[in-house]
Design a protein around this nucleic acid. Structure first.
Ligand code: ZN
Ligand code: ZN
Ligand code: ZN
Ligand code: ZN
Lengths: 133, 133
DNA sequence: ACGCTTGCGTTATGTTATAACGAAATATAC
DNA sequence: GTATATTTCGTTATAACATAACGCAAGCGT
């Protein structure tokens, strides 16, 4: 049974792509409830796990939530900038920072496998708004 | 009323300092249950919030858990290296990386307030062990 | 067709975190 | 010193996030 799972994954991805901020698994669940009235958490979490594995979706650790990837050409992790005002999450590329980090930790004998870099603050749009008011 | 809260905070901090890995709020709760049989989650969470505010404790976002600060002289955030094998969490200093990050995001108009940098991997001790075996 | 493997939906439960309220401690006013 | 306002904290209850375990059904080799 291949198709059923892929259908669910594409539905989940579509929900995330149409969102303007990170969504929790339960936000996604609610969004899919119309079409799949009996949907349950493991269905969503399994879809998210598969999508995360593929790199189509990223988990935002500091929000316990998920975003669709907006930059499909990255071989390394992204830097997430998270606006605490409007909730927007942007992916930023910065290979150099990952190199620096690996270098720094390598000196201590630490072998890095997965990087979590999430910066909270205020995005350009919200900053402008605050200035204007 | 100052003392009552500070007693609980120091107990929580002591538990974290004696742990060899990050602890969840509920791990701490269990550890304090002997001395405070009726302790409840909000008591632990309030203590942790106060300690985090002071900088004595850091939350590890990607583990939903907490560690005692091991480097009391930092004005900026730390880089946490987390061993997925033994669970150890180390604080690493790297002001330059924070400067680079702020610089990078500043160019996009993002105003950074709080940095989360957590690197998962295998620590030196666990790496050696794996090699030996 | 038969038995094997794999993936998925479902039920149930485990784990993490906070809202809300009332009692107790502290401070301020008189 | 008593009354009143303010803050802090314990407690109960519940919300939010996540996974274990089971069983069915699809796909596959024989
Ligand atoms: Zn991406
Ligand atoms: Zn914003
Ligand atoms: Zn520290
Ligand atoms: Zn280790």
């Amino acid at each position: 049974m291949r198709t059923r799972g892929e259908v669910m994954q594409s539905k989940i991805l579509a929900v995330l792509k149409h969102a303007d901020s990170a969504l929790s698994a339960y936000d996604i669940l609610e969004a899919l409830r119309d079409e799949f009235p009996k949907i349950a958490p493991p269905t969503v979490y399994r879809g998210l796990a598969a999508l995360t594995e593929k790199g189509s979706v990223h988990r935002v650790e500091s929000l316990n939530s998920f975003v669709a990837c907006t930059n499909h050409n990255h071989d390394h992790a992204s830097i997430m900038s998270i606006c605490d005002d409007c909730g927007s999450v942007e992916e930023n590329e910065a290979p150099k920072i990952f190199d620096d980090l690996s270098g720094l930790l390598g000196k201590t004998g630490f072998d890095a496998h997965r990087h979590v870099i999430e910066v909270h603050g205020v995005c350009a749009a919200c900053g402008d708004q605050d200035n204007a008011s």
